[in-house]
Amino acid sequence: MFVRIARSRDGGAITHYDLYKIAPTKGMTVLDALFQIQDKMDPSLSFRYSCRGAVCGSCGMLINKEPRLACRTQLSEVQTQDMKLKPFASLTDRPTGWNPEKEILVEPLPNLPIEKDLIVDMSRFYDALEKLKLWVDPVEGDEPRTQSPDDRRKIERYVNCIMCAICYGSCPVNAEREEYVGPAALAKTWRFYEDSRTDDPERFVRAARSAEGAPLCDLIMNCVKACPKGVAPGGAIRKMKD
């Protein structure tokens, strides 16, 4: 099995691709393959990782031109899957020499500046959380609030977001407009707006409707297709736009 990996020692742009021959084992994930390369072949390869169980959101990257969590993507499945994303340049530009029949292509997550190899600068993505003030202003008192199971169910989808930025990397609008806060941040505003316990839900929708938020979304829905956790930010953004 061959893996072709985008390299960028100094960041900025992909400078070249390195091809590695790995020894696949049953159930091996793309993250396992990256560790095999780093451990046994090329210690200079840089990528982020932590939980290896699809809960921490560290290892979002572009795998065969689709944004995925490396830890949750089995090598054996990569070639047969198709998210059917609406294309934009990062998803369609093919590096010369890539043979999709024989090689798995691994590149950094699109739409964020490359820092080194598969590591991107996530500042813009994280900054949106503070810009939109995506937190609760705590209530006073000694008692927990009540919430019906149905009301809890309304936010279930959105609280499952792991902030991996795969939606951000899949979005054609984020590809063009640096200022767009992106699908994850907007899904989180909807999580607070829809939470029956929130005191001032309107504050969240007002924030989402600011110029850098929901108005920029073109309802392309790549985020819904790419999200590894079924959060479906696009659905929430559609409601905010109404």
Binding site: W135, V136, D142, E143, P144, R145, T146, Q147, S148, P149
Partner: peptide, 22 residues
């Protein structure tokens, strides 16, 4: 209990009983 309640008040989406308790 106060540690759990504090986090509930901060917004943690605990699962609920039919009558809405944690």
């Amino acid at each position: 209990p106060s540690a759990v309640i504090e986090n509930e008040q901060w917004g943690t989406a605990f699962s609920r009983t039919e009558d809405g308790r944690i």
